[in-house]
Design a protein around this nucleic acid. Structure first.
Lengths: 241, 241
DNA sequence: CGTTGGTTTGAGCATCTTCAACACATGTGG
DNA sequence: CCACATGTGTTGAAGATGCTCAAACCAACG
């Protein structure tokens, strides 16, 4: 297991993975590590020789800026190949850290390259995983630039629900995520105070409940309508790539 | 030519392209098309069978939202493989349009796949090009979320200068770009009025001049300091990938 | 039982938006 | 050549959105 099953599930949702490619993934040697809340998984400025995959829990990408401020540029759920792009980019321009307790497995670039040499299609599936990340990032840009705080918050809740559902971690309009309001502020580009007030607005209109690190979507349709949420960017189509 | 020379230059800045890979790129059949200002190059919701490369001029990615608002999620300069990711993502969740007059060439996915089958390293170089785009997008997220309008504007000017310099379209702290203040607002997530006032602040402190579609950076060092600009995310390192 | 991390509230202020008008250059048709 | 429309840049004023600071609240935990 070690999260590789979830990776397969995530990719198989988009295109059938032939058994020989699943075998290649299964055969990849892993180095599992557990990180505690807020611990750094990959350091900014480092040059990793391996990429990491989330097995359980959540990881975030941080871009630190002056005066202790930071922006979270991605939230990664189990099955996500967090820093697969370090295979190509070499130098990390941001850090990756755990959100709550997080199990990850590290896979050497060398081994990834060997597996990809055997299968051009597997290469494309890995590339696809980074392309979906990029697609999500474009949507985040639009949320940050042109949507209100309330819409943005609603949008991210819809997105997380769908992404978690794919890997079996969300159902019945509900999922668990250890995200504090301060961290949510770093995702939305807002202050803690404003996150709190925006959250209250969503609660007041009976759209979501958010308690004890568990989010319940009370009315997905209305929430998606408010957020102007369209799941196209998550690429939930199963087709040859 | 047809912009492929610039693509090679852009990639060769990051890793030496062996002559056989350059030959593979040269041999790719192209379909050149010229687009007028604001014309749509790739339509949202379409399923392209080819990807496009900017040969001259500029292209932007648009994400349209309700009530005629839009967000520009990327600015592409000559040599950029704008929608290479459609090779994997299939369905376009955003559109690409010309900024001013723009020459692009379309390259069939089929031909790209054939070329990549011959060279895993070339595949990685194309993948790298999308990974750099993603890296830029992460930085835009941080600019939108955590930097002031003034810093953000300064940041994008620094970025454009460096990216254009790589392909030989900027020198002496100056470059041309046909960007109106309204379009700049769609990049920065600001209203036209505020763009205008922010631009005036930069002019008032003698950091940049912006007239007749030409930007002159009067003091790069001070501008970069203000913007908190660090070029790491542009991956200007030449190394084996 | 006090400490700690997270949430909530109020008040004043800064940033940015909207609306409305004007300035200025370019291009068009009469 | 003038009259007029169009696109872009600029300005002022009022109002909305979101920030900062400061304090209180609350549950979990040693």
């Amino acid at each position: 297991m070690f999260g590789k099953d979830l990776l397969v599930r995530m990719l198989d949702r988009r295109d059938t993975l032939p058994t020989d490619e699943i075998a290649l993934i299964d055969a990849l040697p892993v180095r599992p590590v557990t990180f505690g809340p807020d611990e750094e998984i990959v350091r900014e400025g480092s040059r990793p020789a391996e990429s990491c995959l989330v097995a359980s829990g959540f990881a975030v990408r941080n871009q630190a800026i002056r005066e202790g401020k930071r922006q979270i540029t991605a939230i990664h759920v189990p099955g996500d190949f967090v820093d697969l792009h370090s295979l190509l980019l070499k130098m990390m321009d941001h850090s990756v850290s755990a959100l709550g307790s997080c199990d990850v497995v590290f896979i050497r670039h060398k081994d990834l390259l060997t597996a990809m040499d055997r299968s051009p299609h597997l290469t494309r599936m890995f590339w696809l995983s980074t392309a979906i990340d990029a697609s999500i990032q474009r949507t985040w840009i639009t949320c940050l630039g042109r949507r209100s705080a309330k819409q943005h918050l609603a949008h991210i809740i819809c997105e997380l629900y769908i992404r978690l559902e794919i890997v079996g971690l969300a159902s019945d309009q509900s999922f668990a995520i250890p995200l504090t309001q301060a961290e949510l502020g770093d995702v939305l580009g807002l202050s803690v105070v404003h996150v709190n007030r925006t959250l209250q607005e969503l609660r007041a209109t009976d759209l979501v409940s958010w308690k004890d690190r568990r989010i319940v979507i009370l009315d997905f349709e209305r929430l998606a309508l408010l957020a102007d949420f369209d799941a196209t960017y998550l690429n939930l189509f199963h087709e040859p790539r």
